[in-house]
Amino acid sequence: MNAVLYAVTVAIWGSTWLAIKGQLGEVDPTTSIAYRFALAAAVLLVWARLRGLPLRYPPRTHGQFALMGALMFSTNFLCFYIAEQHLTTGLVSIIFAMSLLVNIAFARLFFHRTIAPRVLIGGAVGLLGIATVFWPEFADFSLSSGSGQGILLSVVGTLVFCLGNVVSGKTQATGIPVVQSTGYAMAYGALLMAPFALFLGDGSAFEPTLEYTGSLLYLAVFGSVIGFGSYLTLLGRIGGERAAYATVLFPVVALLLSTAFEDFHWSARDLVGVALILAGNAVVLTKPELLRRVAGLDREGRTPAGSATAAAPGSAPANSAGE
């Protein structure tokens, strides 16, 4: 089940960066964000009501929902929407992929979790692959340009999103289901954006085009309801540091979409980078026991006695593969 949730998260969120481009036009980003999460919240809460799920929670819990909405369903997306006015979708998704390492750090800081070396190693390999694929865009980076502002906003949005992960994890730990917590949090996120859309938003109230309407519905239903539902469920099951590794695969999906719809041409550098991303993904997600078997090591990190790879008498012992 975790593998299905992981695949759904990668496939959907990997495509939402391209869909966000369809929202950047006549309508102000604050308005588009408010529309997106108001629709998503309505879908989740109506579905919960039809299923007879509990929807009454004390004020303190609603405070958690509101904080989660501010961090995950409004402020961070405002940063990303504005950033995509200056950067390509691929570069924004790369910076967002840094949430892997941020979530690892936050898991240690807020939850006192011990981080397995293989998670750090796999994450480093995956991020190296991302840097390899998009190195030319990083090489042209300048703080004085619009791209510099876009990168700064993307970094801020990623940090805010990861703080939202912490709030979501603590909320799920109290026994509140993902459907209700996500529905309420999205509603609060939309409410937070509404005043900015009404009083500070610059542009049309709505753009009645197929591109804008279609991308809005896709982002609300697939990107928000299904995508966030899958991701937050995964977060509660395997922890934020491992769930966030899905973000490392987003640029791969973005590249595939760019190949199909934007005439992207693969280079040798791209192939090497994607191979590194997939290798890092395998290291993080594969169970330690399987990694040991593949490496031909036992639980103590030694080759099995009597095997063809066993150390010769008098030779140094094999290195540990410890967690």
Rank of each mutant, 00 (worst) to 15 (best):
V272A: 12
Y81M: 05
Y218I: 10
G14D: 02
V274Q: 04
A308G: 07
G203R: 05
F111M: 05
L232I: 07
Q180Y: 05
L200P: 00
I115Q: 03
F222W: 12
A66M: 14
G14W: 00
A190R: 01
V283L: 15
N165R: 02
S267H: 13
P58K: 01
F138N: 10
A194G: 08
A282K: 05
P117M: 12
A282Y: 11
Y57W: 13
I151S: 01
I94K: 07
W47L: 15
A321I: 06
L234A: 05
G301P: 05
T303P: 02
G52S: 10
P59Q: 03
L290F: 14
G157N: 04
V225F: 05
A34Q: 08
Y188L: 14
L159E: 04
G201R: 12
V155G: 03
G52T: 11
G157V: 02
F106K: 00
V221M: 11
V283N: 12
G227L: 06
G25T: 08
A244I: 01
L100E: 08
H62S: 09
Y81S: 04
Y184F: 15
G157R: 01
E211F: 14
L191R: 09
F250G: 03
R242S: 04
L109G: 07
T303A: 13
F110K: 00
A83T: 04
A321E: 06
N281C: 15
S224H: 03
L271G: 11
S74H: 03
Y245K: 06
E289H: 09
L44A: 04
S145W: 06
S15T: 03
V248W: 10
A244R: 00
A11Y: 01
T174E: 15
D270G: 15
P313C: 13
R292S: 09
P251E: 12
T16V: 10
A305L: 08
T174F: 12
M193I: 08
W135Y: 13
L297C: 06
A310D: 08
K170W: 09
T114Y: 00
S15E: 00
A260P: 02
H112K: 15
T286N: 08
T132I: 08
L143H: 13
R299S: 14
V43E: 04
A316I: 13
Y212G: 08
F228P: 02
A321H: 14
V155D: 04
G314L: 06
I104N: 03
L249G: 05
F228H: 12
